[in-house]
Design a protein around this nucleic acid. Structure first.
Lengths: 111, 111
DNA sequence: TTTGAATACATAAGAAACTTATGTATATTT
DNA sequence: AAATATACATAAGTTTCTTATGTATTCAAA
């Protein structure tokens, strides 16, 4: 696991990217998928996940549908049309940002 | 410029890396160097910079010396021995983190 | 068969790390 | 002379997490 504060600012984009890649997903599924993709290095906490998803819905970036699996409810999230655009934009921006950071962190060449 | 919240969590490491690469630096110099290295995409605000530097000093990661340039004072920051270790560790962690993010953001292969 | 772990949602209090605003002062450029 | 750049600093406010807590179902293991 990375020091907690590294995730700050990137969480929303990570979630949007998952929805972009996988279509319809539910919250818990997103946490598991990200954990898997990051080899256990990124574990999204529920306290961060659900408020973020609720905000995305309030902002019209995702829509939700409830589904019953036995007696247990699942809430599926899907990107809206606007959401698709936002997801792509955010994803591109984060990609650009990490490229910039990588450049800054590049070991100083030993002349 | 990137959306403000992307910098969150990375600022301290960026500062430490600059001190590692360039040795003795003053605050304003760090902002200018990072701006240059990022092609103007990362502008460290003073409200973020100075509290961070003060915290690093309080934590024994850097030491300071004041110097007068004419009538104007400059405060130079240098990594302590502990600070050097911390800088390397943080730098490595951030590098690892962005590699993980890059993997997650990787465009889904069209099968 | 009951206990613990995993699945699945949710919210609230508190902390961290920023932004924005403000202040002071000197030096340089237009 | 005025605007911009250099150079420090702090305070209030916001965002975005963490940590803690709560509810409930399902499954595996002891």
């Amino acid at each position: 696991m990375y020091s907690k504060n590294l995730i700050k600012g990137t969480l929303q984009t990570i979630i949007l990217k998952q929805l972009e890649d996988n279509g319809r997903m539910y919250g818990y599924e997103i946490t598991q998928r990200v954990k898997e993709l990051s080899d256990g290095k990124i574990e999204i906490t529920e306290g961060a996940l659900y408020p973020t998803l609720h905000k995305l819905e309030a902002d019209g970036i995702v829509t939700t549908e409830k589904e019953f699996i036995g007696k247990r409810v699942r809430k599926y999230y899907t990107l809206t049309e606007t959401g698709g655009t936002v997801a792509t934009e955010k994803s591109t921006e984060l990609n650009d940002f990490i490229a910039t950071i990588a450049r800054i962190l590049q070991p100083k060449p030993t002349i």
